[in-house]
């Protein structure tokens, strides 16, 4: 009797113990999932906050300055009287940097990718790739320093008219900075081209040059396009090199030898001064940042989509 009772108690006890463990497990599982989810939501909160913030601070600005004057005005003088708020000088400054950087980075990036992929031995490739990646890992402020203290003086020897701060020198270092990214994305694109395609081309008597220019590059054009777009986006957002080397004089010009100002450099300039929060000078920062954000986000989105769909199609 006593024994049976004891057995029953043990049974119930172990039952309870098992329920307890299940419940605990369930709570831990749920809590764990919740924690991970909350962590992930931070990325969404970041994007949302950025958008809300930029728009909120920009709205009062556009109540005073018509959008048309902002977008198509060729005078940018928000800090000195008489104030004018045409953003085109900052845009032209940025575009000069972008154009120069891409002119340098895209052809050489494609040629480096070609060399690594089609011509270099695998040993050489394994040696060169990490060295090139060092170039991508160097902080941008270092490139700014390099532009200011090396590239500009060298350019001055060749082009005596060049100003101490100029778009050309900044564009060159931004190009060097972006080069590894373009090269490595193009390299990925070339690697995704099946070897059977190359063999097919060689089998009809093509030379490497013909195979690359006529088969490999066209076959990977959407990914190369993505590399270019992402490179442009990086160049637009680049800050320190252009702040140090390109100058702080917004000018509606396309002369790369002159001092200019980019959108990013303007934002830095304002933040370095003692601009009181709330005034229209302070708001210009957010307006320019909104434009910057809109442009880069559209480009990043396009670039990522291109890569994404290309990968899906195979």
């Amino acid at each position: 009797m006593n024994n049976l009772w004891h057995q029953k108690v043990t049974q119930v006890r172990s039952q309870i113990e098992s329920y307890r463990r299940d419940l605990l497990n369930w709570i831990i599982e749920g809590g764990f999932r919740l924690f991970l989810m909350m962590a992930l939501s931070i990325t969404l909160v970041t994007t949302a906050t950025v958008i809300v913030l930029l728009v909120r601070e920009s709205l009062p600005f556009f109540q005073q300055i018509p959008l048309k004057d902002f977008l198509f005005g060729t005078q940018w003088e928000p800090l000195i009287e008489p104030k004018s708020f045409g953003v085109l000088p900052l845009v032209s400054g940025t575009m000069m940097i972008v154009a120069g950087a891409m002119l340098l980075a895209v052809p050489s990036g494609i040629m480096i990718a070609t060399y690594l992929n089609e011509f270099a031995s695998s040993k050489l490739r394994a040696l060169i790739k990490p060295i090139l990646e060092i170039l991508a890992g160097i902080p941008t402020v270092v490139y700014g320093y390099f532009a200011l203290t090396f590239v500009t003086p060298v350019l001055k020897e060749i082009l005596p008219d060049i100003q101490v701060f100029n778009a050309l020198s900044a564009a060159i270092v931004v190009g060097i900075m972006i080069l590894p990214m373009v090269a490595s994305l193009t390299d990925d694109a070339f690697r995704a081209v099946p070897n059977s395609l190359r063999e097919g081309a060689y089998a009809v008597g093509a030379t490497p040059f013909e195979v690359i220019t006529d088969i490999v590059i066209p076959a990977s054009r959407s990914r190369i396009g993505a590399a270019v777009i992402l490179g442009v986006s990086r160049a637009i957002g680049e800050t320190m090199a252009v702040t140090l080397a390109a100058g702080a004089t917004p000018k509606w010009t396309f002369n790369p030898l002159e001092s200019i100002q980019t959108m990013t450099a303007y934002i830095v300039q304002v933040s370095l001064g003692d601009t009181p929060a709330g005034g229209i000078e302070y708001q210009t920062c957010f307006v320019v940042a909104l434009l910057l954000f809109a442009i880069t986000m559209v480009m990043n989105f396009a670039g990522n989509m291109l890569t994404y769909f290309d990968r899906k199609v195979g």
Binding site: L44, V50, G237, F286, L292, T296, N300, G303, N304
Partner: peptide, 24 residues
């Protein structure tokens, strides 16, 4: 969409993060 957002954030200009930090 969330993954796409993360890739886009990775390419957001650092100066925009600066403004975010400044305000928030």
């Amino acid at each position: 969409l969330i993954e796409m957002n993360i890739s886009n954030l990775a390419g957001m200009p650092s100066i925009v993060y600066g403004l975010l930090g400044l305000t928030v």
